[in-house]
Simulated assay, not measured.
Amino acid sequence: MPNYLLAYHGGGEPESEEAQAAVMLAWNEWLEATGEAMLDLGSPVGATMTVGSDGAVGPAPADPVSGYSIIEADDMDAALEIAKGCPVLADGGSVEVSELVDMEFDDEDDDDDDEDEDD
């Protein structure tokens, strides 16, 4: 089953302790509803900068990522259904859903290093 990155954009900062408690309750309820599909709840994101291909450093894009999670779902449609329940949407934010691609890396160099250590 594929994994999906949920990248959160926007959403506001709760202005009171009561509002913060309500937001946390909504996130906890959504987390419970996702069940085993939630592989990594992730984290909110703080300060954001951008590094360009020429190495230039600049300000964040107009709609920077505000947090992320990683889920497992049967397909993109199932991942989108999970994302539709995300509490960031109730606060005017959005959820970008991206399928994570499995990458195969050649570990031959690591095997050679292990053999050298045994010699």
Rank of each mutant, 00 (worst) to 15 (best):
72 E>N: 12
57 V>D: 00
107 D>M: 13
95 V>K: 09
25 L>C: 07
96 E>H: 13
96 E>Y: 07
100 L>Y: 05
27 W>T: 05
89 L>F: 02
13 E>G: 06
103 M>D: 09
24 M>C: 01
11 G>C: 05
20 Q>W: 12
6 L>I: 02
116 D>R: 14
79 A>G: 03
118 D>W: 12
105 F>A: 08
81 E>M: 07
25 L>I: 07
25 L>V: 07
78 A>V: 01
87 P>C: 08
79 A>E: 00
58 G>T: 10
102 D>A: 09
5 L>Q: 03
105 F>M: 09
45 V>A: 05
89 L>N: 06
106 D>W: 09
21 A>G: 05
84 K>A: 07
85 G>V: 07
103 M>Y: 15
9 H>V: 15
4 Y>C: 02
19 A>C: 08
49 M>Q: 14
13 E>T: 14
67 G>S: 08
23 V>S: 12
12 G>P: 05
97 V>W: 05
83 A>Y: 08
89 L>S: 06
69 S>W: 01
16 S>G: 03
66 S>F: 01
28 N>G: 08
88 V>S: 05
38 M>A: 07
30 W>Q: 00
18 E>K: 14
80 L>P: 02
58 G>Q: 04
91 D>P: 06
53 S>D: 13
37 A>P: 03
96 E>K: 12
97 V>R: 05
16 S>I: 04
80 L>Q: 10
114 D>E: 12
118 D>Q: 11
3 N>L: 11
69 S>L: 01
38 M>E: 03
60 A>L: 06
17 E>R: 12
119 D>T: 09
13 E>N: 13
55 G>N: 10
105 F>T: 06
102 D>M: 08
59 P>W: 06
67 G>E: 11
40 D>H: 00
32 E>L: 09
80 L>E: 09
50 T>D: 03
29 E>H: 02
100 L>T: 05
110 D>Y: 12
70 I>E: 01
45 V>E: 04
110 D>P: 03
38 M>I: 04
56 A>T: 15
61 P>N: 13
58 G>K: 02
3 N>R: 15
101 V>F: 15
19 A>G: 11
21 A>F: 06
13 E>M: 14
39 L>E: 00
14 P>S: 02
2 P>S: 09
52 G>E: 14
56 A>N: 09
8 Y>P: 02
42 G>S: 04
96 E>R: 13
87 P>G: 10
93 G>V: 06
12 G>I: 10
23 V>K: 12
70 I>Y: 02
15 E>Q: 15
19 A>F: 08
113 D>R: 14
84 K>R: 14
78 A>N: 03
115 E>H: 11
86 C>I: 09
54 D>A: 04
43 S>K: 05
29 E>L: 03
63 D>H: 13
104 E>C: 07
67 G>P: 05
64 P>K: 08
26 A>I: 00
26 A>F: 01
28 N>F: 04
23 V>G: 05
51 V>H: 05
49 M>V: 13
46 G>P: 01
27 W>Y: 15
106 D>G: 03
41 L>F: 08
66 S>T: 13
97 V>Y: 04
109 D>P: 07
22 A>W: 07
6 L>A: 03
84 K>W: 01
91 D>R: 15
103 M>A: 15
